[in-house]
Design a protein around this nucleic acid. Structure first.
Lengths: 243, 243
DNA sequence: GCTTCTTATTGGTGTGACCAATTGCTGAAA
DNA sequence: TTTCAGCAATTGGTCACACCAATAAGAAGC
């Protein structure tokens, strides 16, 4: 029965209508990026609503990253930035995270990251290469006892490869995934001994391939790297308790 | 200079502090999913703030999908849902979209979708298969003159494959990308004549592979499909005007 | 025991006031 | 004329209070 008569009205509140209105204006570029919105008092008159309702609409828009509000100076249409998109993904994954997601993270990385390495080899700028090489140095130099730092550098390496693709979709996809990796580590028994040199070896080979723009080799090396990585991971994976 | 002295204070407003406070409580599961928040009046007392400030914090939280507000009944911590995450990605991509992104959309699809087809073949449930087969029927049946509907069905096919992976990361990645495809079509001269049968043929082969859980074949067929797709696309691509 | 009506609770909107940060003007000093 | 301190206007932030509208819980009637 509930399936037959779904709710229709959803009775939008006034402030939601205002929100949609302004959002549409922004999406249709009637309010171009960087342009200043009328002041709150002016908007109240234009929409013929109270300041209360208007402000709640504005709060929502700023929460979603559409506008920027500065006390004393006014409101502007925000230049859309990747960070807002990634933040909301982080929030989603963060709240959703559990044991079951771990295998799916691994699955995704095994499937996508070799392709990403290939893309990086084809598209990388000199700056990207420099970042990757700096990461190799930092990784090699970091204190062997500081396992926290080590895994951070490892994460950063993979993020740098994703960034080197220059493809925003790739970056938005992988950043939040890599942000989950530290939490995954809580589910394995220990930081694996003696893996640093092996990891560093793979990283170097991947960077070499990317440097020479050798897409196929970048693909293969990344695949080999992750295969090994995941084998180790599975070996040390905690058996989940029954409940 | 701007890089050296970044702004420090950012003088959080009161309502932002309240927002962070409640957000933290939710992230730390002190307010579990589905639990009811105290009423606005109560929260005002607890935080010792006015209703205005509190409500603006609540508006932000609901805009970000953390809580659900129902007039007359109260506020509850929302079960995290994929739709919110995808919505904000849609917004980001939508505002960012331009000619330059098209090649990156194509690049991403060529790289990821064959892998996704492989995953789908390995993980698909009976329900996923049913959806895919229904799509084949609908696609075959749809009015040849209705090019709009045709391309919708095409999009849906690829989305169904992504969903069949059962991997939320894959779905979140691909949904917003496929939402951009209709806009991409504005940049080609015409809907390509006589391509429907060819497309349908590829789709059938992909579904067959997925049905038989033949991962490698699903990969190959998807790759072949997209390769052909993109060739046609490039052929009919409008040359961008100089400006 | 069930339905219907009433009532209390909860979020939504409106008004008017005042606070605080920012901007821009103004007039005095160099 | 130029510079700059200081004032005034503008703009967003917060508050208090009143009232509306949707919902849920309890009371009354069957």
């Amino acid at each position: 029965m509930n399936d037959i008569f779904k709710k229709i009205g959803t009775t939008q509140t006034l402030s939601q209508k205002i929100e949609r209105n302004i959002e549409r204006a922004i999406r249709e570029k009637k309010l171009p990026i960087g342009s200043k919105l009328p002041s709150e008092r002016e908007l109240c008159e234009m929409f013929a609503v109270s300041r209360t309702a208007l402000r709640e609409a504005l709060r929502r828009l700023s929460a979603r990253g559409l506008i920027e509000i500065r006390k004393g100076s006014g409101m502007v249409v925000k230049k859309i930035n990747m960070k807002d998109a990634i933040d909301s993904l982080n929030l989603y994954y963060d709240l959703k995270f559990d044991m079951n997601l771990i295998s799916q993270i691994i699955e995704l990385r095994l499937a996508f990251e070799p392709e990403i390495a290939k893309m990086a080899a084809l598209n990388r700028k000199d700056e990207d290469l420099a970042n990757l090489e700096q990461n190799l140095i930092d990784f090699a130099a970091c204190d062997p006892d500081n396992t926290q730092l080590e895994s951070d550098m490892d994460n950063k390496f993979h993020l740098n490869v994703a960034r080197a693709t220059g493809n925003p979709f790739v970056i938005v996809t992988m950043e939040p995934v890599h942000n989950l990796l530290p939490r995954m580590r809580n589910f394995i028994y220990a930081n694996i001994e003696g893996e640093k040199e092996i990891t560093l070896g793979y990283h170097k080979e991947i960077v070499n391939a990317i440097r020479e723009r050798d897409a196929e080799r970048a693909y293969e090396k990344m695949q080999a790297h992750l295969d090994r990585n995941m084998q180790v991971y599975n070996k040390f994976m905690k058996i989940p308790e029954q409940d």
